[in-house]
Design a binder for these strands. Structure first.
Lengths: 332, 332
DNA sequence: TATATTTCCACAAACGTTTGTGTTGGTGAT
DNA sequence: ATCACCAACACAAACGTTTGTGGAAATATA
């Protein structure tokens, strides 16, 4: 089974201490010759370092933990991609844990697993942490950072898109295309994210002095079904000429239900979605979106997590931008 | 920072040994009264167990590792879901690692990270392990099992769908609908999976004494783009009346390119995909698929991984079945 | 040659648990 | 009163590393 540093020491005729230093590449502690002997012995024995022992004594680990919510939202992949890239560069390992969606217990479990392992840092992707777990996270004394979610009142440091701006930008885009009656669909209005986007939408409508109706905003949970529900709520004969979907998946729901209603997108109805993942490109018509920089979010996440100074850090917005595709066109 | 078992011992006025036994719930070693005192002290100090220390002495961990390839295939989610369910039941933790796609280095790195941590078991999801890593995996003496991939010559134990059967079943389904000229698109013909499916396709065609043409099978990598490429290869005026796509995403590529060619699915061309993820339901027309039981794969994976006897275990196929949706219809 | 410096290495403590083995005091049987 | 026994706990070793310190040999300095 596992060969230890002692076995290597014996085989190479040196002390365990020397083996340790050779294997972790601390120069100025051994000669070239012994280094070679040690390496040869290690290879011969198929040595694998025992991370538990290392972490026990060094009290730090080279792995950072990513906790994601198990939604079917697919942008997490992009964020993780960015994280991995940075981890690679910095020779760090990343482990990923699923916490359920709004499941306090699962969140706690995931949190405990990584805290017990005393990881280098924790990145929480799209996790709406249950308040009962705030303390657990805080008292662990491990750097952490939320990604792709916003908090009020400096509750936690985070990196996200500016959700207000997202709502605002989507709306003004549509307004400037001549739309007047614009729906806002399928966002979770209990979430801060949903509220910010809605606020952005309202601000834009206000600024252009466009009246709105409560019927135009539909509650939901960013899911596909919420998109079809929203469209059903608007109805076959809707007065809306455009609608903003809270996610790509929700937009697809709207598209499909619109088609079922025989309302043509984009001719009868313009749709712009929020996120801009690959889904936008594989459906027809392709969906015009407010595209978020998820990969960048992952990269910046790693950078600020590792950069220290998280205490002074509060929040950072990554860029967004309209990606024009086919699902939205000018009106009137 | 971290309170240790010793701190608790001191506060509770007992020995560390007793604290350990209380906290890990070994009865018959302490009185109710001291147990209460220990628990109270632990809570008061915000104690978090040091997993490194535990694993160091016990030489086992309660976490199983899942290594996934970072494809944009979305079935991994379902498999992980099944895994998580079982882990929950058995009070195990699961950590997920990304290994790149056919990237020997990344595979090695992921493998090493989990081996060094001496996890309880390793589940490799859709990982086509580079032969250079075979030894690493084998010599670790950690139970492992591949999921959603097949191997020749008993190279590794795995649980997967029967890929030959998938190809066969997709083909006979189409044949019995009256199709004669059937394409086989976008599978990676260098992969064993691709070859098995192709063999199944050929067997079916043979059994029905249907001639085939090399032009009808297109190489690829299960990706969206491979679907559109395949369709381009078949051409606007294709003689094919049906095509089997190697994945849902590839099927969507075919759908879109077909639409671009103005060939109507399913009227002009029937499409059946392999996988049957949610993607099949959110595009129009909905895609008829050979649906795999990914969740079951995850569940069975955990069960056999934990069941021991992996040495006697060779392979296990999980169920498949046609899910009829809208993209395929009778011909002639 | 004598001393100082450097190079290379070994010794041993420490990290926070678990767990086998002692030890104590108390209870019941003889 | 003696013994055996049991409950309830403490002691200490062990797990595989890292790292501060000390020391011998080799080299440089005077």
């Amino acid at each position: 089974m596992g060969a230890t540093i002692k076995d290597i020491a014996e085989l190479a005729g040196v002390s365990p201490a020397t083996v340790s230093r050779v294997l972790s590449g601390q120069s100025d502690f051994y000669s070239e010759k012994t280094a070679r002997r040690v390496h040869r012995a290690a290879k011969k024995l198929g040595y694998q370092k025992n991370t538990s022992a290392v972490e026990l004594v060094t009290k730090t680990s080279k792995t950072i933990a990513v906790i994601v919510s198990s939604t079917q939202t697919n942008f997490a992949d992009q964020i993780i991609d960015g994280i991995q890239e940075q981890a690679m560069q910095k020779d760090l390992n990343v482990i990923i844990l699923y916490a359920g969606e709004k499941n306090a217990k699962l969140q706690k479990r995931a949190l405990e697993t990584v805290i017990e392992r005393s990881v280098l840092g924790i990145l929480l992707v799209a996790i709406d942490l249950d308040p009962s777990n705030d303390n657990l996270l805080r008292s662990a004394n491990i750097p952490f950072l939320f990604l792709s979610i916003c908090f009020r009142n400096h509750r936690f440091p985070f990196i996200s898109s500016d959700d207000f701006k997202i709502g605002y930008q989507a709306t003004t885009y549509l307004i400037e295309k001549g739309h007047v009656k614009i729906g806002f669909a399928a966002a979770d209005l209990e979430s801060f994210t949903g509220q910010l986007r809605l606020a952005g939408y309202r601000r834009a409508m206000d600024e252009y002095q466009l009246p709105t109706s409560p019927d135009w905003v539909s509650d939901g949970d960013f899911a596909y079904e919420d998109g079809v529900l929203a469209m059903k709520q608007y109805g076959e004969e809707t007065q809306l000429t455009a609608v903003i979907a809270s996610s790509d998946l929700a937009a697809i729901g709207i598209l499909n239900q619109a088609q079922a209603f025989n309302v043509k997108v984009p001719n009868d109805l313009s749709v712009v979605s929020i996120d801009g993942t690959y889904l936008c490109n594989i459906v027809r018509p392709r969906i015009t979106s407010v595209t978020q920089s998820f990969r960048e979010m992952g990269i910046k996440g790693m950078q600020t997590l590792l950069g220290g100074k998280l205490d002074q850090f509060d929040l950072l917005y990554t860029g967004i931008g309209i990606t024009e595709r086919e699902s939205a066109k000018s009106h009137g």
